[in-house]
Computed example of a mutant assay.
Amino acid sequence: MTTFLTPQQHADRTGAAVAAAVAAGRGLGLTVTDPTVLHDVFSVVVHLAPSPVVARIPTVLPRPNDLAAIARRQQDELDVARWLAGQGIPVIAPSPLVPPEPVRRDGFSMTFWLFVEEARGKEPDYVANAESVADLHAALRAYPGRRLEFLSAADPRFIADSLALLDRHPDLIGAAELDRARREWRILEPLVRSRGAFEARFPGIDLQPIHGDSPPANIFNAVDGDLYADFELVTLGPIEWDLAALGPEHEAAYNRGARRNGTRPLDEEVLAFVNALAMLRVIAALSLVPQLPRLMEYLKPAVEHWKTTPFAAGISG
């Protein structure tokens, strides 16, 4: 039977993350007297008040003890966000008050960001956000940073490990569904693991730096205007990955943005691939439910939808 994190254990984890961020912030010379948790799902996000600095501490992770790997991804995020800010792109930037690098403290790896006042009460417009992602992609094409890994945002190791682990958790997924997911993964895995295999299957599809984590859902409503945020999964890949599983309305909005700025529209075959891959990441995310029990209420509808979709989006092995 699966053992789930209790509310007290969750509170203890959050408290430990906040304490680590406060200690790290003070160690960097920040004044911190009133730390305030702004967000607590996959990461604990804490305003180190009164300093205008926000610390983000990942806490729900496939491999929480691999701090070196976490820090490598965080450095990519800091680098691309700092570069975008320097180009005048509206983005939440790393804090200028501390060095732009991850900090390890008490078993956590964290990053520090400029505090931005949220426009509370403003409902996000995800369709408009999807259109604006074409502008973000246009900017990212010029990113000169060190080489990003191909589709690292899909995290094929996480998918493979999770599909193996879920055998031991029949209360999270049924045997028939797990069997289907594994058969789909056998078809899709080579296209994720190998850039060459992807390019052979989808000739002519250009690859570029992309956000990696559904940017229409990661645009922050600031008092002074919307800002791109949360580049934790920044990667090299097809633009379609950033629209995965969002549906026709958002795809059409993106294409409007692409026409406006002269970049290419979404490719239907690549969309089918990334949509199927995104659904397998949903199945894999079931393995994280013991760390974050309320995640199940968000994943369950997606799993039910996945059951109605064509096998591996019609892609043949």
Rank of each mutant, 00 (worst) to 15 (best):
F311E: 09
D12G: 09
I187E: 11
E118P: 10
A197K: 13
T263E: 08
K122D: 14
A24L: 06
L30H: 07
E184I: 01
A93C: 05
D213C: 04
L207F: 03
R168H: 14
P96H: 04
D267S: 13
S132K: 15
L61W: 12
A153D: 15
L165V: 12
N255V: 03
L243H: 01
S132Q: 15
V32N: 09
A21Q: 04
Y126S: 11
I89K: 11
T31H: 11
L266E: 00
T59F: 02
A258P: 05
A244F: 08
R72C: 09
R120H: 14
G88E: 09
D76F: 12
R186D: 13
P301T: 07
F231N: 02
A85G: 10
A258N: 06
A20W: 00
A253N: 02
S194T: 09
L151T: 08
E251Y: 12
L148C: 03
P99H: 00
Q75E: 09
T111W: 05
L97V: 09
V41H: 13
E249T: 14
A285E: 12
S194Q: 10
L292R: 15
V303T: 11
V54H: 04
T111E: 05
A130C: 05
A181P: 04
A24W: 06
L233V: 08
R256Q: 10
L166V: 01
L292Q: 13
V282D: 05
T36Y: 11
H47F: 07
A313V: 06
V80L: 13
